[in-house]
Simulated assay, not measured.
Amino acid sequence: MRETAYAKINLALHVRRRRGDGYHEIETLFAFVDCGDTLSARTAERDELRIIGEFASQLSDPFGNIIAKALAKLPRSQGLALTLEKNLPVAAGLGGGSADAGAVFRIVGAPHGLPDDWRARAAGLGADVPACVESRMCLGHGTGTALSGVVNDLDGAPVLLVNPRIPLATGPVFAGWDGMDRGPLPAGPASAIMRAGRNDLEPAAIALVPQIAEVLAALGESGATISRMSGSGATCFALYADARARDAASARIAAEHGGWWQMRGALRP
């Protein structure tokens, strides 16, 4: 069996308050790109995990990572031998580990379904994991685990992901948030929420990794209909009117910033 661990992006991310437990109340519009990491699986006597791909070396403890934890969360009658092709950068605001865990849930659930409490099991692995299991556009509230539907009028929109190849941990970015509540997500379909929304973590992320501002500037000059940082960074995304415009922007950015990581795709339903 083969599953794509779809890259997660936050079309908008509003931070509302810091909670007493140290987490933050957020409101976000989750979206998923039709590409990402790849997980291949076969039945085995015991669980096995092999990691390949461009960013494999950034996962130094494969059996302590979120894939192994996801396997341990789910009841199964057989072991699974998994191969992860790590195409997404680590600590990049794309929910890479959460997406990998989501793909594990889909692989395990495909033959017999998931337990009724799978959402709680997924949330125990990370705030983005429940959304990543379904990998469909949705709204996230609370810490991001309370999900609701949204009218998706952006299905198939061409998207370009760009990262300056600088890892950025989530904790320090949230710690750098200025604490100001700038208001809730707007109402309406996804396109309206995206355009009127914002990412409240951009200033804190840029303070830690100034190159994010360079990426946003390059995307802003690339003919995109909108560009923004995803999650806690450092990856930024841009949407385009058509695939030709996206590919032209990708080529231009590659020529001017050859060291940056890129991925081209389209938004999923």
Score class of each variant (00 low, 15 high):
Ala103Ile: 09
Asn199Arg: 13
Cys138Arg: 00
Gly109Arg: 15
Pro210Arg: 04
Pro210Gln: 08
Ala92Leu: 05
Gln262Gly: 00
Arg2Asn: 08
Val129Pro: 03
Leu80Ile: 10
Asp181Tyr: 07
Val104Leu: 07
Val15Lys: 09
Ala187Arg: 15
Glu134Asp: 11
Gly223Cys: 11
Ile206Leu: 02
Leu11His: 05
Gly258Met: 04
Ala92Glu: 00
Glu202Thr: 14
Val209Ala: 02
Glu202Leu: 08
Ile166Phe: 15
Leu160Gln: 11
Asp21Met: 10
Val151Phe: 06
Asn199Asp: 11
Ile51Lys: 07
Ile166Cys: 01
Lys8Gln: 06
Ala41Tyr: 14
Gln262Trp: 03
Leu201Phe: 06
Gln58Cys: 15
Gly113His: 06
Ile226Gly: 13
Gly126Thr: 00
Ala243Ile: 10
Arg198Asp: 08
Asp100Trp: 11
Arg2Asp: 14
Phe30Asp: 13
Leu147Ala: 02
Val108Gly: 01
Ala190Val: 05
Arg17Asn: 08
Ile253Ala: 04
Phe174Asn: 09
Thr38Pro: 01
His14Gln: 08
Asp128Val: 13
Ala245Thr: 04
Ser40Ile: 13
Glu214Val: 14
Met1Leu: 12
Leu216Lys: 05
Trp260Leu: 03
Ala238Thr: 15
Thr170Met: 10
Val159Ile: 12
Ala196Ile: 07
Arg17Leu: 06
Asp100Met: 11
Gly176Ile: 05
His141Trp: 15
Leu168Lys: 04
Glu202Asn: 03
Ala169Arg: 08
Phe55Arg: 00
Ala169Gln: 10
Thr4Ser: 09
Ser250Gly: 09
Phe32Cys: 11
Ile26Arg: 04
Phe55Asn: 00
Gly142Asn: 13
Thr170Asn: 11
Cys138Thr: 14
Pro167Ser: 10
Leu239Asn: 07
Ile51Thr: 00
Ala44Val: 14
Glu85Arg: 02
Ala92Asp: 00
Gly53His: 12
Arg2His: 14
Arg16Phe: 01
Glu214Arg: 14
Ala224Gly: 06
Met263His: 04
Leu201Gln: 09
Asp21Gly: 02
Gly223Met: 03
Phe237Asp: 02
Thr28Ile: 06
Ile26Glu: 04
